[in-house]
Nucleic acid binder design. Structure first.
Lengths: 131, 131
DNA sequence: TAGCATACTTACTTTTTTGTTAGTACTTAA
DNA sequence: TTAAGTACTAACAAAAAAGTAAGTATGCTA
């Protein structure tokens, strides 16, 4: 599904090589990865638990993002040879090393979201808020 | 170009509302925004200077990402009423407030990229490296 | 009067990401 | 023998992001 010689792909590759931030975002970015990572920071979880605790994610998306996180060494997949099957996911050392960074990204967002939302309101609504 | 009631869009909206990290990434993520932000951290720049110093970016992409950064209050657009026109872009207060976070993202990437690349090498290449 | 410089737009195409639906494999329990 | 539980896969469709190519406006300068 990736065309290795498209401009798009070549640009991405070059940015990932030259820009630390692009490299990081290629690992922790994407629709569901932040939520998955924050879930696994708290504790390891089974596939079905992740599915339940992340509203809106589909099985395909969950598997895809887990596989990518695993490929980049952020999480570990532990299979228990039982029936019915049991598979647990947990952060690796590398995953844990990202915690401070993940928190700083999250904190910045939580701190500035309200201001951003308020700035988009009309003066009238602002007055209402101020009461 | 956005379908406001697609599952995709609804999922994104919900994540941005509930997850600080997704909110942040919706502002600083995307193909060229990291590079633009790091360029402007150093000093303010003209449109044409950004175009020159960011290899591979097209005019359409540069404008699009500048507009989004401006919309979210990260940068300021300063127009000088001259001919030929002159337009400068600089970080706002909000933009500067993100610097520590941007640096932590960049640093984590630069620190782990080598290890990640090395881990993907064959043992033979590793031995070569180790010499 | 044609060309130049700057900072863009617009219309369109390609590529990538995300979502939908319907399976699969295995074993146990009813 | 049929259903149930778990952790997936595969084929396909929709949506979004990124890229391409050509054009716009302005006033100066040759």
């Amino acid at each position: 599904m990736r065309k290795p010689n498209s401009t798009n792909s070549l640009n991405e590759t070059r940015l990932i090589r030259n820009c630390g931030m692009d490299y990081t975002l290629s690992i922790i970015g994407g629709r569901w990865k932040p939520t998955i990572l924050f879930s696994l920071i708290k504790c390891k979880m089974r596939y079905s638990e992740l599915l339940k605790c992340i509203p809106g994610i589909s099985e395909r998306m969950l598997v895809a993002q887990l596989r990518e996180l695993e490929k980049h060494g952020m999480i570990r997949r532990i299979v228990y040879p039982e029936v019915p099957p049991r598979v647990e996911y947990e952060l690796t050392e590398l995953g844990h090393s990202a915690e401070p960074m993940l928190n700083s990204i999250s904190d910045w967002g939580n701190m500035h979201r309200e201001q951003g939302e308020r700035a988009e309101l009309q003066p009238e609504s602002l007055a209402t808020l101020a009461k």
